[in-house]
Design a protein around this nucleic acid. Structure first.
Length: 847
DNA sequence: GATGTGACTTGAGGGAACCGAA
DNA sequence: TTCGGTTCCCTCAAGTCACATC
């Protein structure tokens, strides 16, 4: 088959880029001359292919990859296997349910297994309800809110028309992009993307969406579910909320909970939780039960106090000296402040890196006076140790403060949070996520960031734009200052913004994840992912077809999508070279990041991935792929240098445009959410049974969560105290075992005595000893489970996936179904963030 | 169509707060 | 009550993605 390819075509590269040697070489190869012809035909056919900007070797010198900070997947695998062994020897029967064929929580196997299952499994519409992106979402867990809002729904229907394009000033029309024109009790699933108007028209063409007489979209599935719901209601004679409330009231109180309640004075709240809320603040704003009457705007009224600035620089005491070339030097205030930034970091590895030192020194010199610059010419001659010692002492002093002194500080802090940490949004008090302006300091990029060590300058009010509603109390700028600008743009969610000087990025003051604005977006995100579930089989079939397409570009698209779907890779936007660390995602993978093995470890068509992803976290994985993918990869790598792009014909914009055609609202990152949540749901279904103890259930939950974290490559550094705490646990287990052995011996004796000549006393002793043995056995098992869980969690971060990728309704439903207190899986912050899900989800929810 | 901009989400690290054992 | 290990939660860097502009 002939493959369309215009690699040799003149317009291949972006105009500003120089052609690399390898590019020229390729242009001259016979294959490419052929491709050039094909390319011209492409152009004629209107399918012009464009090369992506390519990395030249000078810009991306091939350097050895950073040692895995924590582990490669191989290590993860090894850990899992060990754990598996542990689990077996400890007799905790959880292993049979591990996700992979090899009974390890191994990424490859896990994903392969998952795909095999989901590929074979037909996702029918009756499994989950169809959710229309732009129309009312009506599925079981939302019904309660729907019902409640129906009271006001009809009267408000008219309000939900598209807002006309707003006359935006400084910003482009976010309202256009995200109209959120939903009806009362509904939520629009059109996330932050923009083309809602366009999409709505596209969406209305979808065949699986039925239009009812009044123009309201309703799917057949929704109708079916509504019918079921009515039947359910008829049977119970009560509405779902009542049932739900009753159910929750009935829920047995876990031991831990009741213990906690007693301890905290029967209100079930920890000290922290108690401290977090003011009197009268207990009633959470149940925005999910309300309609959105903002016509796509983010808010109607917004009032806040503006951001809180860091304290002014406090000069060093006279007895703390900076030395240059062995001589004490009294620095100017500005230079001294920057010197303290460096001095504070002296113990950090950063300061040993040459780029950090160079960047710091360059920026520091800019803050110096002419005389200082004249005098201080070499960083190596600078001695910051005295300053460093001073700050260490200060830190020790702070630690050694009395309880009362600490309390005073805390109260001062609380006062500031009270004043600046909340805003009034549409009449509701909402928590602000980050109300403090970032203090000055030295920029710490992650990985080998070329700008590490540069000076992050102090932000002045004159650089800050305030966003609030017209007619509200405008925040007052600090004395002697004024704001850069005060605007009233309700199409954006931020309260204040500024541009940081190191990378020129915008920084924003935004709301806390528990707020309506963030919660609604989160909900929408999971609804899009659920919608993908209905389409994923078609999409997979389509990208498989792409593998054999005659166009190179289409083939690359097919393979890239396969990776994004199968391996949960990030999209991989192009980045500014030399401005950021050299990290990649799917579309920006280079030839050097993969190695093809015709056969490895008894499996054919193996692809070895080794690259630095987001935050310079290493991604290492060996994956068996389908033969056609393997062949295509070979083709993509043909005649390329290691530093050339693997997918040189596509980029994330192209990929997302294509995905959006398959399903409105679909982008590359939705696959991560979809696959993460699907994996959690499948694993929980597989790993939990009703007869498990609470601890066993929690281990199952964490294992399911872990499978997702591995899939998403969420690694963490092993805690510093890991070995020690494991040793402590092991000691405890040994101690408990010993106690158990003794108790068992005593029981045997007691039984013997009782058998000899049974009296009331001997009978009671047997009973007592039996209960002791039982209690000790339970305690031992609990400790063993704890140990297993901790060991398995050594280098895996569960938090990120839990917060960002796992539909909370899966977890909430699981808790309800298996009587697990929600506090066991979500801490206070997480419960606040997922309040909407906790309130609306019933036990039968399935992602 | 390429590039730039802006608004947002995702992510790991680290200090503060908390909690249980001694 | 103290100490030390663990968890929470804040911070800010680093992504994604859509729209604007050239």
């Amino acid at each position: 088959m002939k493959l369309e390819d215009n690699e040799g075509h003149g317009g291949a590269k972006t105009s500003s880029r120089k052609r690399t040697a390898s590019e020229s070489k390729r242009d001259e190869s016979p294959t490419d001359r052929k491709r050039s012809k094909d390319g011209e035909r492409d152009k004629k056919e209107g399918t012009e292919l464009k090369h992506k900007a390519k990395h030249s070797s000078s810009k991306h010198p091939r350097k050895p990859l950073q040692e895995p900070k924590i582990t490669s997947s191989g290590v993860l695998k090894a850990v899992s296997e060990n754990d598996h062994a542990d689990v077996k020897t400890k007799g905790v029967a959880m292993d049979a349910s591990l996700p992979s064929g090899k009974n390890t929580i191994d990424l490859n196997n896990n994903i392969s297994a998952k795909h095999t299952e989901s590929d074979e499994r037909k996702v029918t519409k009756t499994e989950i309800q169809e959710v229309d992106l732009f129309a009312p979402i009506e599925h079981s867990d939302m019904e309660r809110s729907d019902k409640k809002s129906k009271k006001t729904g009809d009267s408000q229907k008219d309000k939900h028309k598209h807002k006309s394009k707003s006359s935006k000033k400084g910003h482009h029309g976010t309202d256009e992009r995200n109209p959120e024109h939903r009806k009362v009790g509904e939520i629009s699933v059109n996330s932050s993307d923009g083309n809602s108007k366009k999409r709505k028209s596209k969406d209305s063409l979808e065949t699986d969406v039925l239009l009812t007489g009044d123009g309201k979209k309703e799917t057949a599935v929704k109708k079916e579910n509504a019918k079921k719901e009515r039947e359910k209601k008829d049977r119970s004679g009560k509405d779902t909320k009542t049932t739900d409330e009753k159910k929750r009231k009935k829920k047995p109180e876990g031991k831990e909970e009741s213990k906690k309640k007693r301890k905290d004075g029967d209100d079930g709240k920890s000290k922290k939780e108690k401290g977090g809320k003011k009197e009268g603040e207990d009633s959470t704003w149940k925005w999910w039960e309300e309609g959105n009457s903002n016509n796509g705007n983010k808010w109607t009224t917004l009032e806040h106090k503006g951001p809180l600035f860091p304290p002014e620089y406090e000069p060093l005491p006279n007895n703390v000296t900076f030395f240059y070339n062995g001589n004490p030097v009294k620095l100017s205030l500005a230079a001294e402040e920057v010197a303290t930034f460096y001095a504070k970091m002296l113990d950090h590895e950063y300061t040993t890196k040459s780029s950090f030192q160079e960047n710091f020194f360059t920026d520091w010199r800019e803050e110096m006076t002419v005389e200082e610059r004249e005098q201080i010419k070499k960083l190596s001659k600078c001695d910051f140790t005295h300053i460093n010692k001073y700050f260490l002492e200060k830190s020790e002093e702070k630690k050694a403060m009395t309880k009362e002194q600490k309390q005073v500080l805390k109260e001062e802090n609380n006062k500031l949070t009270e004043e600046y940490g909340f805003c009034e949004l549409d009449g509701h008090r909402e928590k602000i996520g980050n109300f403090r302006v970032e203090p000055p300091g030295l920029f710490r990029g992650r990985g080998e960031h070329p700008k590490m060590g540069k000076l992050k300058k102090r932000i002045q009010p004159e650089e800050i734009t305030i966003n609030c509603s017209k007619g509200s109390n405008i925040p007052v700028a600090p004395k002697g200052h004024k704001w850069r600008k005060v605007q009233h743009d309700n199409t954006v969610t931020w309260l204040a913004s500024w541009v940081e000087n190191v990378q020129g990025n915008f920084k924003y003051v935004m709301l806390n994840p528990s707020s309506k604005l963030k919660g609604e977006k989160d909900w929408q995100k999971y609804e899009v992912a659920r919608k993908l579930k209905l389409k994923v089989e078609t999409i997979r079939r389509l990208y498989r077809d792409d593998w054999k397409n005659r166009e190179m570009k289409t083939r690359q698209r097919g393979v890239a999508l396969y990776f994004i779907d199968k391996l949960a890779l990030r999209a991989g936007n192009e980045k500014e070279e030399s401005e950021t660390a050299d990290t990649v995602g799917c579309c920006s993978l280079r030839v050097e990041h993969i190695t093809l093995h015709q056969e490895k470890g008894g499996q054919e068509f193996m692809v070895e991935f080794d690259f630095l992803g987001k935050d310079s976290i290493r991604y290492y994985n060996e994956v068996p792929v389908e033969g056609r993918v393997f062949k295509n990869l070979k083709l993509f790598m043909e005649n390329k240098e290691p530093e050339d792009d693997l997918f040189d014909r596509i980029n994330t914009t192209y990929l997302n445009k294509h995905l959006n055609q398959s399903m409105p609202g679909l982008t590359a990152k939705v696959f991560r959410t979809f696959n993460a949540s699907t994996t959690l749901q499948e694993q929980l279904n597989k790993l939990t049974t009703a007869d498990m103890s609470l601890e066993e259930k929690l281990l199952s939950y964490n294992r399911a969560n872990r499978a997702v974290a591995i899939l998403c490559n969420h690694q963490r550094a092993a805690p510093k105290t890991f070995e020690k705490s494991m040793q402590n646990l092991q000691d405890k287990v040994a101690q408990k075992q010993q106690q158990l052995d003794v108790a068992k011996k005593e029981l045997k004796e007691a039984k013997k005595e009782h058998k000899k000549g049974g009296t009331e006393k001997t009978r009671k002793l047997v009973e007592k000893t039996e209960s002791v043995v039982k209690r000790l056995e339970e305690q031992l098992k609990k400790l063993q489970l704890q140990m297993t869980d901790r060991e398995e969690n050594k280098v895996i971060a569960l938090g990120t996936s839990k917060l960002n990728y796992l539909d909370p309704r899966i977890s909430v439903a699981w808790c309800r179904k298996f009587n697990v207190p929600i506090e066991k899986i979500y801490n206070k912050t997480q419960r606040d963030k997922f309040a909407w899900a906790i309130d609306m989800t019933e036990e039968d929810f399935q992602f």
